[in-house]
């Protein structure tokens, strides 16, 4: 087996060290090494967005990034959204608005939506759809997803 590298990084606000082979993607490192299975494997080609995580605040397909590239970065996964048992407004609104059917795409959508709202707390519908364009939902629930993001934006802004 190839030599493993030690990767020091920050995941969901905690300093983490893990060992991985260079050929392991960040997605594999998160799921198989660190047991963070919230990020989902879909296409492995960067098309579906199910594996989306935030790297230094930017949305990235974790299937198209190596685990070793996480060195010194700040990674946020869907596991980092809730505070304790208190769901993030996006998670809460996805539930209330029934914005998921099978749910495989949901963690990716949540992370893309979080990245959008962090930058633009009051996005238009077009801006929401653009920001979510790298995430595919094969149950075709896009309208409810967009609505949940709009509702979450209102909650975050206290409107």
């Amino acid at each position: 087996m190839a030599k493993k590298s030690l990767v020091e990084t920050t995941i969901n606000g905690e300093q983490v060290e893990f060992l991985c082979e260079p050929r392991q993607s960040l997605l594999e490192s998160l799921r198989d090494v660190l047991g963070l299975t919230g990020s989902k494997e879909g296409c492995l080609t960067g098309d579906c967005g199910a594996c989306t995580v935030l790297v230094d605040g930017r949305p990235v397909c974790s299937c198209l990034m190596l685990g070793v590239e996480a060195r010194g970065k700040k990674i946020t996964t869907v596991e980092g959204l809730a505070e304790g048992t208190r769901l993030h407004p996006l998670q809460q609104k996805f539930l209330e608005d029934a914005s998921l059917q099978c749910g495989i795409c949901t963690p990716g959508f949540l992370m893309s939506a979080k990245s959008l709202l962090d930058r633009n707390p009051n996005p238009t519908e077009a801006e929401i759809r653009y920001a979510l364009a790298g995430n595919l939902c094969r149950c075709t629930g896009y309208d409810k997803i967009v609505r949940a993001v709009q509702d979450a934006a209102r909650v975050i802004q206290g409107r």
Partner: peptide
């Protein structure tokens, strides 16, 4: 080029 995820990389 691609989605925001792709453009970020």
């Amino acid at each position: 080029i691609g989605s925001l995820q792709i453009q970020s990389r």
